[in-house]
Amino acid sequence: MENPGYAREPESPWVFRAQLATLIGFSCFAALVITWIGRLIYISWVLADVFSASIGIALVAVPIFLGLAIIFNYVFWGLHRGRQQVQLPSADDAP
């Protein structure tokens, strides 16, 4: 591939914090949507208003959002763990 030594310059710690913030933001969004769906199920139960439709749609929609959150987390932590253990310093590195 194009990076033969898998060498990478060191990054400031803020980069990881920003990445984590994005991950948390996305997971929160997925959680929010699932909460919304849950609220709609609750309302339809309380108002006796086609509970079955809410359950049916939730059975499809909730796994999708859950799945997307899981995939994003999988990619994030997978890439994080898959890095080279040693990060070469940017300057002198005599072969």
């Binding site: 400031s12 990445q19 999988y74 990619v75 997978g78 898959g82 890095r83 080279q84």
Partner: peptide
């Protein structure tokens, strides 16, 4: 560069990362 560093999620092209992706 900071923006790209953040979004690249530490990609280096290792075989493990390729598998995940």
């Amino acid at each position: 560069k900071f923006f790209y560093q953040t979004m690249a999620l530490g990609w280096e092209g290792t075989p493990a990362q390729h598998r995940v992706l």
